[in-house]
Design a protein around this nucleic acid. Sequence first.
DNA 1: GGGCATTTTAACCAAATGGTTAACAAAGAT
DNA 2: ATCTTTGTTAACCATTTGGTTAAAATGCCC
Lengths: 205, 205
Amino acid sequence: MPKKQKDKTTEEQILAAAKKVFVRDGMAGARMQDIADEAGINKALVHYYFKNKEKLFEVIFMEAANRLFPRINEVFTAELPLFEKIEKFCEEYISLVMENPYLPLFVLNEIHRDPNYFLGKVWKGKSTPKPEKFLAQIEAEKAKGTIKDIHPLHLLMNMLSMTIFPFVAKPMLQKNMGMNEQQFRMVMEQRKTEIPRFIIDSIKA
Amino acid sequence: MPKKQKDKTTEEQILAAAKKVFVRDGMAGARMQDIADEAGINKALVHYYFKNKEKLFEVIFMEAANRLFPRINEVFTAELPLFEKIEKFCEEYISLVMENPYLPLFVLNEIHRDPNYFLGKVWKGKSTPKPEKFLAQIEAEKAKGTIKDIHPLHLLMNMLSMTIFPFVAKPMLQKNMGMNEQQFRMVMEQRKTEIPRFIIDSIKA
DNA sequence: GGGCATTTTAACCAAATGGTTAACAAAGAT
DNA sequence: ATCTTTGTTAACCATTTGGTTAAAATGCCC
């Protein structure tokens, strides 16, 4: 009768299984039966804990989005010199995504599937991302003459692109250039410092 | 038979419809009925021209892959000075993808779904991509002292990332920064020259 | 051990979906 | 015109799939 002894084991097992299946197959490709099998339980039990596929998906998607977006937002809000900020972001973001390499593709894909759902749920209550401050910081550095005349938006896009894209394209890069898991990890490890150097070399006045 | 007043033959109509639906919904999310509806014909007719969903998908995927990959391969093989090659690639690739902005996400997603299918079908007969020559060209420039000491692989990844990622992340960027279609097109138009400048500024000795 | 809520399962159901069939319509050939 | 081939359709079929139900197990408190 006591509400719940928080027998999390089952619920967590379902969440772990759902994450694996959803990230692998996407919302459309995922099968409730697969999630149940992966969790080693009966399918009805999945519906017992999470009403339906959409509700379960929502939990997984939000978990993924809330892991990926806040760190980007940090770039926008943090109080840090520009160069250090760039270094910090690349280093930390690659470390973060390395733990779940396919999360970005999953999230971008589902945003593409239903952009408005994304808009509605992700920035609910939470502060919507405000790149303005970061863009202003770049403008300030330009004014100080410490960096060249570059469009702030492009600098931002370049940094995000170089950091995130390799994960999105991971299977292609691997098949294409015969990279194995080990090599991919090594290359991404290098990029933690290569990307900031590349950027700073480009914009440094 | 109501020969469509459109100049398009039935088979072409199906292909156009299939492309739209597959690129929008992916292999798993696409419905044969949707494709038929989009083409304005009976569902059985789709099976008449293309045996089944997988065969139809194969045609669409190969069409997409064969539009996206050869231009990348050109970078690897073309005889052109490094800087010009970079400028040419960004300019041409953005123009190319601008016509079908969601093609990269579609292709990357399906490669992720089944990397081996990709390996088997895409480079069938066609020359597999050989980045070696491009990487060697970079090494040569390094030796000549015209560019700084950068890892060729990272330079390649940076160029591809900055060029392709904005399309993959298009819905997110638009929702996130309140960009409309018009603004997105304008930004990508700028990137045709911004990216090469950014790269060359970074690596120029 | 007996009530009682919670957890778990097997069996089931209705809708969706890929695919088939058989009949019908249109062109083309004779 | 008639026959044949090709194109097209409505109706149908088998399987998959998300979701439900009712019963069984499990724990919990007295």
